[in-house]
Design a protein around this nucleic acid. Structure first.
Lengths: 219, 219
DNA sequence: CCATATTTTTAGGTTAGCCTAAATTTTATT
DNA sequence: AATAAAATTTAGGCTAACCTAAAAATATGG
């Protein structure tokens, strides 16, 4: 079965909105896909007929196994292309998301398998998100929100959960990258910002920034 | 200005059909784009309004400078991607055309400039066709149809003008590749086939095959 | 140069994916 | 539990890009 770009975007959006275990609502999808709620309802009916999702009128939507497999294959393509753009073409990680949004819809099984091989079967994309393998399996890593991590412990930044260019640019400026090691030395109660040690220097991280950064304990 | 995939395909098709200096006809375009003549007429009217082409009812169509620039940028992307697919991902040249047909529509100036740099600014794609530079300039190479080339002269295969998989597969079998050196030792009047010397062996090339092969004199 | 064949255009229709406005259902509040 | 607010669906429309059938223009050949 071959799907349109629009259909693929719906399935991908539903996948992300239901990662928390809950079903996705029409309004959430409208927001994510930048379309009006009425358009979402239309499309959900169509995608249900194609056996990509379970849709219960007024109560939200979840993916079928079919839909999940499709979503994973799109996410796989997206993340492999991001890895390529950053690590081979030297494009800044602030810019790769948008380009990968287009590349993820290119249809060729051979292409993506050869790309994966060429890149050395990477496990994580430049934002630290896991890349599903060709069967749709994901290596999840244990990670904690930086806001909830322990003080005075060696931490490694392992992923970020926003693709916003202003956010990523700020990380660049502060030298906070995937793989960077830090430890929290002070948590301020007033504005919930953090002082962290980074290469012998101290950097302040606002709550807003910290909420989008995930870390794992080093070792 | 940003164009749809369909619009880009029209402009590309017109570019190729008018490379001989003549204007392109509705029927030719219908054939090239696998659409009905009536649909072509519709679209030509639209593209004329967008200043991509000159369309004279009943008498055919040519590109404006605007349209030519767009065509060249698409061809540039197509050929750079083909080069990438063959030389980096090791995908067989019989398969890359179709994949590049999709990749050529990905929109990102940065992407294509970085790709070009990464590939080392190649001048020719895997089929021997020239890759336009970022300004749309093409390095044309002097080439002769193998059917018209001189006998007993060292020749180098420099391009092929079909993307048909059966054709390319046949070249593979006969070890006829871009860069391969041959010389014609016999031209048969009966079926117009050729015997050529290739690495001390003699290979017979049918007229049909030879018509799609271009060579230049070695040196 | 007229009749026929071919090419092209026009007219009217379809589907996908979106929209707005209005109606309906669910959820929240008192 | 009644009503107000919010979310969702329905109904009816639009545009892009295709289609078929019929009409019109151009090309061909005796």
């Amino acid at each position: 079965m071959v799907y349109t770009i629009s259909e693929e975007n719906y399935v991908k959006a539903i996948f992300h909105l239901t990662e928390n275990g809950k079903s996705a609502s029409t309004n959430q999808l409208a927001e994510a896909l930048k379309a009006k709620p009425a358009s979402i309802t239309d499309m959900l009916k169509k995608l249900e007929l194609k056996n990509l999702l379970h849709y219960e009128k007024y109560y939200g939507v979840t993916l079928t196994d079919n839909g999940k497999q499709l979503a994973l294959s799109i996410i796989r393509k997206h993340r492999l292309w991001e890895y390529f753009l950053v690590n081979k073409l030297n494009i800044n990680w602030t810019e790769v998301h948008e380009i990968a949004e287009q590349l993820e819809h290119v249809k060729s099984h051979l292409l993506i398998e050869q790309l994966d091989k060429y890149l050395g079967y990477p496990d994580f994309d430049p934002h630290g998100d896991p890349i599903p393998d060709s069967k749709g399996n994901i290596k999840e890593q244990e990670k904690t929100r930086l806001t909830l991590a322990a003080k005075n412990t060696e931490l490694e930044i392992c992923s970020v959960n926003s693709r916003n260019a202003d956010f990523l640019e700020m990380l660049e400026m502060k030298k906070l990258q995937i793989g960077t090691c830090i430890s929290i030395i002070k948590q301020y109660s007033f504005d919930k910002s953090l002082d962290v040690k980074l290469n012998k220097k101290t950097v302040n991280i606002s709550e807003q920034l910290a909420k989008n950064i995930y870390v794992k304990i080093k070792g």
